[in-house]
Write a protein that binds this DNA or RNA. Structure first.
Length: 685
DNA sequence: GTAGGGTTAG
């Protein structure tokens, strides 16, 4: 029996061979040699049941006094406690207690014993015990201090980590690459540019004999530090000048490109990478999904598998988010079933992304069902569910969900309030929204940001409370920016408040002259009140500045394929059938009271032509295609890049009444469920 | 026994 061949067994799956082998070793345990070997095998197996049996056998045989054996046992307890795969929720604290008991029973403890315990506490989120143990140690051991620094960083106690670093310096302790990367990570996360720069200077000053890859790991930490401190150029320069780069260096830069939304650079860089791992693929896939490249995200996910990489749960989450952007429900469901087969369905990020996927694909019930059956939930899950209900116009349910979240002792964060306020806005719940907005600072000590103010302005303006909205803007501690004026303009359009609307639009023209939405909203407002000259002025203004209206585009998933239609589409292979069907549908919808709302057409053309333009709006084409292709009883779920236009909104109501089918439209902002001639939005859009 | 690169909510 050789220890070297034991370590080759792959953890943590306990192969039958290893299992029986452990059994044999249990019999040999009476000799310290035999028990050390068995402990080594145990570490490889990471099996807590075997560990407990072994613990008992070791105590019985008196081998507990052999430090190396007890160290190995402690190590297994600690690892099993933190992996908690398929275990009961309380078993991790139980296993840590067992480790502690063993520690207390030991006659002699060495550095490894102490460090294993401290690292174990850190891994199991018990920093208080970790600090206690560290304080009890006679010697100041760098490894142990490093472990605690990393623990503080993981828990967001960045200043604690810095304090430990300073103490290490004061004690004259040896500082290694783990110490420096730990403290740099604290500076990165706390946004401490000056501190981090000082640490960098300190490293450069130190004349020590460093470990072979000392500067490689330190440089990797510095890359992220400089980038997040707003010094992307400096970070890039560092990357170029590094004498040695590894996967971590490449992944660090890739993820920073993605995080800062520089997706085209990220794509180029991804192709350039000399080596990739699952993590690189994951970063790229979710980066694409987050930046609206759902189709490319999904393609990359498949390519990843083709190239022989096994997607992890995070990669699946990225692919699922691609589906939600696309509205590819069938595809998302396929991924869901793959996940279950692979055993990833317990993963929080996967569960959370599935909630969003079902909701954003229009099936809010499925999202709710998933939420209710998930084995664990975090604030992200609650936020996702509240957002889902709000987007579907279920404002009251969203509020109820938020109250339940509080009862469950989940602390709401800034995003929770954004979702709650949006939910109130989509349903016109002014008083409730005001109460939650006030509670942010009063009950949770959170200062509302500009985005929170914008939601409030949206809520107030949609409800026609313009003087309240103005008062709120005046009371803001920050200068109102784009989100505030956008909310105001949208509210003014709903209520035809020209004066205020023009003011808001002017602010927006100053802040963002290149954005098409402002021109469109303002000219629509002029059109509604018949101010044709002013409308023409806005249009000229737009032309002079070279601003192009983003074309309306809608799409639908049929037979696992996404079919997209542009306004006045001529490219789709089945477009003729679509127009024919719309021709048939026309008189029926008019019989139900449809009158084309030609005021909404921007071009200076006659009424017939305007009706023609309206009748080819992308959302109408897409609904017609869905009605032609989907089975008779299936709901029609369509997606649109822009907000649905008022004429299409009326049309959809009547079509849903005529064909007796549910039509669900996701526009740029929210969902509309049309049934029997009515829409779930109740006019609040 | 410790580090540097990831995910999900708006």
């Amino acid at each position: 029996m050789h220890a070297s061949c034991l370590i080759k067994f792959p953890p943590p799956i306990l192969s039958p061979g290893l299992h029986s082998f452990l059994g044999i070793l249990m019999l040999e345990i009476s000799s310290p040699q035999g028990s050390t070997l068995a402990a080594v095998a145990l570490i490889a197996a990471e099996d807590h049941n075997m560990c407990q049996q072994m613990h008992a056998a070791v105590v019985k045989s008196g081998a507990a006094n052999v430090t190396s054996v007890s160290n190995a046992l402690i190590s297994v307890y600690v690892k099993c406690a933190s992996s908690s795969l398929g275990m009961m929720p309380h078993s991790s604290s139980f296993l840590m207690c067992e480790a502690r008991k063993l520690f207390d029973e030991m006659g002699e403890r060495d550095e490894l014993t102490w460090t294993t315990m401290i690292a174990g506490f850190v891994r199991n989120d018990d920093l208080i015990s970790a600090q206690e143990f560290l304080d009890q140690m006679d010697d100041s051991l760098t490894v142990a201090w490093n472990a605690l620094i990393s623990g503080y960083v993981q828990h967001g106690s960045f200043y604690k980590a810095l304090e430990m670093f300073r103490n290490m310096q004061a004690l004259g302790m040896e500082l290694d690459e783990f110490t420096y990367t730990g403290v740099l990570s604290a500076c990165t996360n706390a946004g401490l540019l000056r501190h981090g720069t000082q640490v960098h200077a300190h490293i450069l000053r130190t004349k020590m004999k460093p470990a072979p890859d000392f500067m490689l790991s330190v440089n990797n930490a510095l890359l992220t530090f400089y980038w997040r401190a707003g010094k992307a150029d400096q970070a890039q320069h560092l990357f170029e000048s590094m004498p040695k780069r590894d996967l971590v260096s490449w992944n660090a830069v890739l993820s920073e490109y993605v995080k800062s939304g520089r997706i085209n650079e990220a794509k180029k860089y991804f192709l350039m990478m000399p080596q990739k791992c699952v993590l690189s693929w994951t970063v790229m896939i979710s980066g694409l999904a987050q930046n609206g490249y759902g189709e490319e995200g999904l393609k990359l996910f498949h390519q990843m598998k083709v190239e022989g990489y096994e997607p992890c749960d995070y990669a699946f989450a990225g692919a699922i988010i691609s589906c939600s952007a696309l509205g590819a429900l069938k595809h998302g469901q396929q991924l869901h079933s793959q996940l279950v087969r692979l055993g990833f369905d317990g993963s929080l990020s996967v569960g959370n992304s599935l909630i969003t996927m079902y909701a954003r694909c229009g099936v809010v019930e499925a999202a709710k069902c998933l939420f209710l059956t998930m084995s664990s939930l975090d604030s992200v899950s609650w936020n996702a569910m509240i957002a889902a209900l709000g987007q579907h116009g279920k404002g009251t349910d969203a509020i109820e969900m938020y109250e339940e979240m509080l009862r469950e002792q989940i602390v709401p964060d800034r995003i929770t309030f954004l979702t709650v306020l949006s939910a109130c806005s989509h349903k016109g719940l002014v008083d409730e929204g005001q109460r939650y907005f006030d509670s942010m600072s009063a009950s949770f000590g959170m200062i509302p940001g500009e985005d929170h103010y914008a939601r409030m302005i949206d809520l107030l303006c949609r409800a026609g409370k313009f003087s309240e909205a103005n008062r709120l803007i005046e009371s803001m501690p920050i200068k109102p920016g784009i989100p505030i004026w956008e909310a105001m303009l949208a509210g003014c359009r709903v209520h035809g408040n020209m004066d205020l609307g023009i003011q808001a639009a002017e602010r927006l023209f100053e802040l963002r002259p290149e954005h098409d939405g402002t021109y469109i909203l303002l000219s629509n407002m002029y059109a509604t009140v018949g101010r044709w000259d002013d409308m023409a002025k806005v249009r000229n203004f737009m032309r002079e500045r070279g601003v192009k209206k983003e074309p309306g585009c809608s799409w639908i998933e049929v037979d696992h394929m996404v079919h997209a239609f542009l306004v006045g589409d001529t490219k789709h292979p089945e477009i003729t059938a679509v127009y024919e069907y719309l021709q048939e549908l026309g008189p029926e919808i008019i019989k139900l009271g449809y009158v084309p709302d030609t005021q909404l057409v921007l071009h200076k053309i006659d009424t017939d032509q305007k009706e023609q333009v309206l009748s080819t709006h992308s959302e109408k084409l897409t609904v017609a295609f869905g009605l032609l292709k989907l089975p008779p009883s299936a709901p029609i779920r369509i997606f649109k890049n822009l907000r649905i236009c008022g004429d299409c909104h009326k049309w959809m109501k009547l079509v849903s009444q005529f064909v007796k089918r549910e039509i669900i439209v996701r526009d740029g902002r929210r969902f509309h469920h049309f049934t029997d001639g009515a829409c779930s939005c109740g006019g609040y859009w």
